Each structure stands twice: as structure tokens, then as C-alpha cells.
Simulated assay, not measured.
Amino acid sequence: MKILLPIDGSQLSLEAVRFAIRLAREGLQTSFVLANVQEPATLYEVMLAHDAEVLERVKGAAGEHLLQGAEALLAEAGIEYEREVLSGDPAHALVDIIERFECDAVVMGARGLGALSGALVGSVSQALMRASPVPVTIVRPHAAPEAEADETEAETPSS
């Protein structure tokens, strides 16, 4: 099985990598594809840089940098992976990667937006869930220990 791990540099995307590593440690025979998709250059960026090739190199270097945390986690776990940095619409580029690398599934971090914000703005995870030809697993953030303790105290009847 080959799993795509979209990485945006956030802690949520690294949490998804940790989840995928846990799956592999629990016996899932898998390899991974780390991917970062850089948004296309804006007109302002093109006007400022005057050179589309320079912008592509800068965005490519930024994508490579964002993959480093995930690469370190996978290397530490001794798990095989491939990598890809693209530019374009994130959901469409990720579908291209799924098809090109023949991925069987996607594991990615949740954006963490509320329902209304997600509906208005949209998110890569929502768009990919609609467009993906393979199953997509969304890894939600863990609740902070203080929040869990507060919830437990709130549920416990006081004497």
C-alpha cells in the first residue's frame, strides 16, 4: 500500500505523519509519498520578481523546506518514502500525485476551521475528499491536556 501524505509545514500535517507512522508500526505494509503543493505565483509576485523562473525556484525551495519535518519523522522511523513538490491548485495537484505515484490512500491533517468558515473559504482537505479517487483519512488535532482535564472535571459530579 502506498499512502500520500500532503505536508504544508503545519503541526497538523506532522500529526498526520505521526498517525501514518503508527499505522506502519502496527503492521500495515506501506510506503509513503510526501507532497507539498505551492500556490501559483500571484500577479503581484510576478510583477515584483520580473522572472517566473526565479519565482518557481523560490517556491520549490520553500516546498522542499516544508517537507523537512516530515522527512525527519519518517527517517527516524526507518520508513521508506518518496517526495514531490509541485505548484498549482493544491487539491488538483494532489489528485495528480495520487494518480502518478499510484497511491492507495491519503492521510492528511485537518485544517481546523469551523463549519461556517470551512463552508465559506473551503479547504484543501474538503476539496481533496470530493476529488480523490482513493480514500482520504483526516487526522484531527489532539485536545490539549488542560482541555481534557477541564472536560473531565465538568463531567464529574461535585460532592
Rank of each mutant, 00 (worst) to 15 (best):
A110I: 03
L43A: 15
L67Y: 04
Q38W: 05
R57C: 06
A62V: 10
L48K: 14
G118K: 10
A154M: 10
L48A: 15
L67K: 02
A61Q: 13
I3P: 08
E53G: 14
E26A: 11
L113E: 10
L34I: 03
E84N: 08
S117V: 00
G122Q: 05
T156H: 09
G112F: 13
A62C: 05
L23H: 02
T42H: 03
S123R: 10
V95F: 08
V106A: 15
A154H: 08
V33Q: 12
D104I: 02
E102W: 00
M129K: 05
A20T: 07
E155H: 12
A77E: 10
G60N: 13
M129N: 06
L73A: 09
A154R: 13
A41Q: 05
Y44E: 03
R130C: 03
G122N: 05
A143F: 12
E151I: 12
C103F: 05
G114V: 06
R83Y: 04
G112E: 11
F32T: 00
E84P: 01
A144N: 08
A127S: 12
P141F: 02
A154S: 13
G88V: 06
A49T: 08
E84Q: 12
I97K: 00
G114T: 15
G78K: 06
A119N: 03
A77C: 07
A52N: 06
F19H: 15
F19G: 04
E80L: 09
E80F: 11
D96L: 03
V95N: 04
E151K: 15
H65F: 14
S123Y: 01
R22C: 07
L120Q: 11
I138H: 10
S117W: 01
L14K: 07
A110R: 02
Q11E: 12
D8A: 09
E102V: 04
D89I: 11
I79F: 08
G78L: 07
F19P: 00
P90L: 03
